[in-house]
C-alpha cells in the first residue's frame, strides 16, 4: 500500500498577510471618517444667570484704593530713663583735731582730754552724718528734677506727634475724598458705557433667542425657494406673550407668510430679557425679521 499517496490532503490555512493589512486599512478608513466626518467639538453658550431685581441695585462702587494710610511714624523707642547717676556723697572734710594742749594736771588733764576727745568724736560723727544726709537729700532732689524734666519732654514730644498725626490724617482724608470723587465720576461714565454695551449685547442675544425659537416653530411650506425675508411687527405684553402679529413686508409667498405668523404665535411667550432697559427694545412692539435659514 502506498501510504504517502494515500495520505489525505490537508489544505494549509493561508496566513493572509494581505487580508490582515486590508483589515487594518478598513479600520483606519473608518477612524478617519469618524474623526473628520463628525464634528466632535461642541460650543456651549455660556450659561446665563439672571437675577431679578425690583429696583436697580445701588451700584456698589469699588472701595477707593485703600487710602495710603500713613503708617504712623515709628514711635521713637522710649528712651530708657537715664540711670540717675548718684554721685558719691562728697567726702566730709575731716576736721583736723586741734593740736593737743600740753596737759597741766596729769589726771585732770587726762580726764578732760578723754572727755574732749569723746565729745569731739561724737561731734565728728554727728557732722559726718549730717553731711551724708544732706548729700543724699540733694541726690534725691536732683533725681526727682531730672525725672520731672524727662516726663515733661516726653509729654511735649507726644503732643507734637499727635499734632503731626492729625495733620497727616487730615491730608490723607482730603486726598482720599478727592480720589473717590474722581473715581466716582469715571466709574459713572464707565458704568454708563458698559451698561450701554451690556444692553446692546443683551438685546442682540435675545433677538437671536427669539429668532431661534420662531425658527424652530416654523413649518416651511414645501414650495419655498431661496431664503426669503419676512418683516413683521409683533405686539408683545411685558411678559413676552404675543398679542398680535402684523406683516409689514411680505416675502411674496403667502403660504410662507402665514407659516411665519403661525410660528410667532406658537412661540408665545417669547424670551425677553429680565432687565427693564433691555426689554424696552422688545416691548410693546418688536419689529421682527425672519428668514427660514440663518
Amino acid at each position: 500500500m502506498n501510504l504517502p499517496a494515500d495520505a489525505p490532503f490537508v489544505a494549509r490555512p493561508a496566513t493572509g498577510l494581505a487580508a490582515g493589512a486590508l483589515a487594518v486599512g478598513v479600520h483606519a478608513l473608518f477612524l478617519l471618517l469618524l474623526v473628520a466626518g463628525v464634528s466632535w467639538q461642541t460650543q456651549h453658550p455660556e450659561p446665563v444667570m439672571v437675577d431679578l431685581w425690583d429696583a436697580l441695585p445701588q451700584r456698589s462702587r469699588p472701595e477707593p484704593a485703600p487710602a495710603a494710610e500713613p503708617t504712623p511714624p515709628p514711635q521713637e523707642p522710649e528712651k530708657p530713663p537715664q540711670p540717675v547717676k548718684v554721685e558719691p556723697p562728697p567726702r566730709p572734710p575731716v576736721k583736723e583735731a586741734p593740736p593737743p594742749r600740753p596737759p597741766d594736771i596729769a589726771l585732770e588733764k587726762k580726764k578732760a582730754e578723754a572727755q574732749k576727745l569723746k565729745q569731739l568724736k561724737a561731734m565728728q560723727a554727728a557732722d559726718e552724718k549730717a553731711l551724708a544726709d544732706a548729700a543724699r537729700a540733694e541726690a534725691e532732689t536732683m533725681k526727682k528734677l531730672r525725672e520731672k524734666e524727662l516726663a515733661e519732654q516726653k509729654k511735649r514730644e507726644l503732643l507734637r506727634q499727635m499734632e503731626e498725626d492729625e495733620l497727616m490724617q487730615r491730608m490723607v482724608e482730603e486726598d482720599a475724598a478727592q480720589e473717590v470723587r474722581v473715581a466716582k465720576v469715571a466709574e459713572a461714565r464707565a458704568a454708563a458705557g458698559r451698561r450701554q454695551a451690556e444692553l446692546a449685547g443683551m438685546v442682540g442675544e435675545y433677538r437671536n433667542q427669539i429668532s431661534a425659537k420662531v425658527r424652530g416653530n416654523t413649518r416651511l411650506p414645501e414650495n419655498l425657494q431661496g431664503n426669503p425675508e419676512v418683516r413683521c411687527l409683533v405686539r408683545l405684553l411685558p411678559t413676552g406673550e404675543v398679542q398680535s402679529v402684523k406683516i409689514t413686508r411680505s416675502s411674496g409667498n403667502p403660504a410662507y407668510d402665514d407659516a411665519v405668523v403661525r410660528a410667532i404665535q406658537k412661540s408665545s411667550p417669547l424670551p425677553l430679557p429680565a432687565e427693564r432697559d433691555a426689554r424696552a427694545a422688545f416691548v410693546p412692539e418688536l419689529s421682527f425679521v425672519h428668514r427660514p435659514k440663518e
Partner: peptide, 13 residues
C-alpha cells in the same frame, strides 16, 4: 473587529 475583518478578507480570497 480587527480579527473579524481579517477573516472576512481571508475568506473572501
Amino acid at each position: 473587529s480587527l480579527m473579524s475583518w481579517w477573516f472576512i478578507f481571508l475568506k473572501l480570497f
